[in-house]
Design a protein around this nucleic acid. Structure first.
Lengths: 182, 182
DNA sequence: CTTACCATGTAAGGCGTTACATGATTCA
DNA sequence: TGAATCATGTAACGCCTTACATGGTAAG
């Protein structure tokens, strides 16, 4: 049917919570959505123009002290469009883990190499986990303040859960690889 | 530097284990690599031609009883190319979970809707998990038969670990959403 | 005999990234 | 005053999917 760009729904979803500039949308993606969705400026700005053209969002000038600023809002049609998408089942959940890929072919490079990939992965996860845990706590404490908090918490909890599983796996994986070296 | 197509490495990695046809490569991706990497015929066949052109793989005719068949092998240069890539750290691990996205904006559609997304996700994971567990067991029992088994097991173990975490999260998430309904 | 599977490939087009281009403001 | 951050946008290009096109074989 329609042009089914996921980025449209992501943006519309964010705008359904609050009015935002393109720059702010990018920031939300780099923080809140980071661990399950990503996008660059090069896709956000064109998508915003497109949404306005299709009547799903509106744009207003919000320049402050001469600083350039375009604030976007979701329209009624946009809300309808988003709601319709939310009703159909998710059909694509995908993972692209380069770390796993390198590990899968790890016998080519040997255990030491594989372990260093796991270490790098582990460090990254360990670095990000505290932020997720902090966010989960904040949300749990303010769960009734805003209707959106519960759903936000759901996704953060997903992040915490999977990140912890990743860390457990790192330890087990290194143990398995270590055995060979003895 | 070079054209850095991940699909090239995936194919080369598979060919480093055994000679394969394009069709078989696709099958491997739909089974062994499924839960952390994916590709379609439309990317596999052109990539294979390209690899041959670049001298990283070679092609031979393996037609059987009139059935069309092209068997690909990795070359020495291909092995070198793959090994080099295996040595540099993985830089992109990404998740694109539409389920999570729909949940993040779940307040627009309500708890019942959100729960049905979680249920669908849970069913899919529950359906795939036994296959992963079976694969892990087989690999664990034959760990010393082949050098590649250990690395394969590593990635399967990752799948098992994360899938179990997903299922735990599903229960918790539904509980959280259910509270509201009471 | 017909369905499922084996097998290869192309064309069109969608989607998104990287890099570039520009410029203001805030803070140390 | 220089770096970081705020802010918007375009152009080129890469990568991949979907759909199409074709045809053989195996199994029920």
């Amino acid at each position: 049917m329609a042009i089914e760009k996921k980025i449209d729904y992501v943006i519309l979803g964010l705008l359904s919570h609050e009015d935002l500039t393109g720059y702010e949308i990018k920031k939300r993606m780099d923080t809140s959505l980071k661990y399950f969705w990503g996008a660059s400026f090069g896709s956000i700005y064109p998508a915003l123009s497109d949404l306005v053209e299709r009547g799903l969002a509106s744009k207003r000038n919000g320049a402050e002290n001469g600083r350039n600023k375009l604030i976007y809002s979701i329209t009624e049609e946009g809300k309808k469009y988003l709601k319709e998408w939310l009703q159909i089942p998710a059909e694509r959940d995908e993972l692209r883990y380069e770390t796993l890929l390198k590990l899968f072919f790890g016998n080519e490079a040997g255990a030491a190499q594989a372990i260093s990939h796991i270490d790098a992965f582990q460090e990254r996860i360990e670095g990000e986990l505290p932020f997720l845990i902090g966010a989960a706590e904040t949300l749990r404490n303010n769960i009734d303040l805003d209707d959106t908090h519960k759903y936000y918490l759901l996704t953060v909890a997903f992040g915490v859960k999977t990140y912890r599983a990743y860390l457990e796996w790192c330890e087990e994986a290194k143990k398995l690889l270590g055995e060979e070296n003895q």
